[in-house]
Design a binder for these strands. Structure first.
Lengths: 276, 276
DNA sequence: GCCCGAATTTCCGTTAAAAGGAAATTTCTT
DNA sequence: AAGAAATTTCCTTTTAACGGAAATTCGGGC
């Protein structure tokens, strides 16, 4: 989330420079294109959205397109994010092999419970949702969408990622980040409540967040990586009435089994070095 | 196009320079990291794999990490692809809204047929597999994996993307690309055979490739975008014995329904412009 | 705990190219 | 076809990318 910092000033570039700046600007453009979604953006749209000069955008866009970061529609001249990004992303979300292992297991979990399951990966100080599998129960709870990134601690999966970090100091650091405070404020959750959730999560071995989005609840279980710290979280969301005793326990049993399966297949730490 | 052409006077680096070069090098590094998969790469690994100078890699890696293109593991100092890429990728694969619409439909298709279904998007002169849903039949046919990119025309989905392009000249152009020839050579398919497939695809309204990977067959159906040209392809793969009459017809019926559903939900062309 | 080789980071002068303003050209709209 | 909007090119100054090599830090045997 450090992207948009220096994006708007013209004339003199105050912040970072050089490659730093180029990649920063590229990030701004890519984010703009991502936000534009299915519509894509024309050259001017990019210029306006980023506040960069025409020349700069022109140069950047040419370079980005040349290397497949972005693509131009065949028919009109609108720009879109390039498929190349997708290729990298599949590799990125498969860190520790999680995605590949988790997918079929999540399917099974969604099938037996009927609810929507999620997979989130920790990425620095945030959690990113990398997969969502819908269940058959007619009321779908879609609190997050693949690609969404949010502060650690808000949302069940995200909470599980935070709660089971073993280094207390790291947890404190994360709780005191400005983004954290901002995120909490937005969600209407105060620090005391988060801390309460953390304690409960560690006591119970899972996280549960009830009615943060009114009427819905979600459960999160940590998936521990080779080092012992959580690298991912398995989430399950449903309307609150479906996540109360006695059903809650049945769901938990299934989820624990699923998380354990995923972890078990993760273990072989890839210590291999490479290119010699 | 033709952005960095004026700049190849002597000096030392013969190819492209500047931003062009920076993004090119970034691409090389990202590809290397993608290839390294779960193992990640240390600084030296990147230096060796790319052949770039230490200084250059150092500068690039710092800039890439600063902006979330890559991340460094907390424990040791290995580099991985950044989750930021995943965020962009979900947006990229959802061009025309295909991914979002297609996912549940593919699930249903895999469920009723028991076979593995694929979704490929056209990206310039190539097709990229962006989704795979496994069926329940015990023999899984995994000819491609999400993130795989290949030449148009090889593989059922890819063939469907090629065959239903309406501009004949464009098809000719694609068939004559060097990558095409190379890809055909690798797969042991000659031009006559491809042309034969194209004719058959257009006659039948679907593509079928039998035993290109021995023992397996695959079907591809085009998904037409708002302009009428195919933007995506729905694929289904199974062992060859499962894709013969009379089952073939049943599968085709299901697939046609699925493809039609996807297309129907795509139609509203996003002509909206944006930022004003 | 100390050492040695490997890995990573910093320094440096040279030189290409990134910067943005503005103008020229092309494309779309009316 | 005229006019407006969008896109590309031109131009000069300023800046940081470049890679060789040195300095520092890291890691893992003994």
């Amino acid at each position: 989330m450090s992207a948009g910092r220096a994006a708007e000033r013209r004339g003199f570039t105050p912040g970072e420079r050089g490659l730093e700046q180029s990649f920063g600007r590229a990030t701004v453009i890519l984010n703009a294109l991502a936000a534009s979604g299915e519509a894509g953006m024309r050259f001017v749209d990019i210029v306006r959205a980023t506040g960069l000069s025409q020349t700069t955008v022109h140069r950047l866009v040419a370079a980005l397109a040349e290397h497949g970061f972005i693509e131009q529609a065949a028919t009109d001249s609108r720009y879109f994010l390039g498929m190349q990004l997708a290729g990298w992303a599949f590799a990125a979300t498969n860190r520790f092999g999680v995605a590949e292992v988790a997918h079929p297991i999540m399917h099974h979990l969604s099938e037996v419970t009927g609810d929507t399951t999620y997979l989130s990966l920790r990425s620095g100080d945030t959690a990113m949702c990398v997969a969502r599998v819908e269940g058959s129960y007619p009321i779908h709870v879609r609190i997050v969408t693949p690609g969404d990134r949010h502060v650690l601690g808000l949302g069940a999966g995200s909470l599980a990622l935070l709660a089971f970090i073993r280094d207390e100091a790291e947890i404190e650091r994360l709780l005191n980040l400005p983004e954290q405070r901002a995120g909490r404020a937005r969600a209407g959750v105060d620090e005391a409540l988060i801390r309460q959730w953390l304690v409960a999560s560690r006591r119970d071995g899972y996280s549960i967040v009830q009615d943060l989005v009114p009427g819905t609840s979600a459960i999160g279980l940590p998936i521990h990586g080779p080092t012992g710290d959580p690298v991912a979280a398995l989430g399950l969301a449903a309307i609150s009435t479906r996540l109360q005793a006695p059903r809650l326990d049945e769901v938990l049993t299934e989820m624990r089994a699923a998380a354990a399966q995923i972890e078990a297949r993760l273990r072989p730490m890839p210590k291999a070095h490479l290119v010699r």
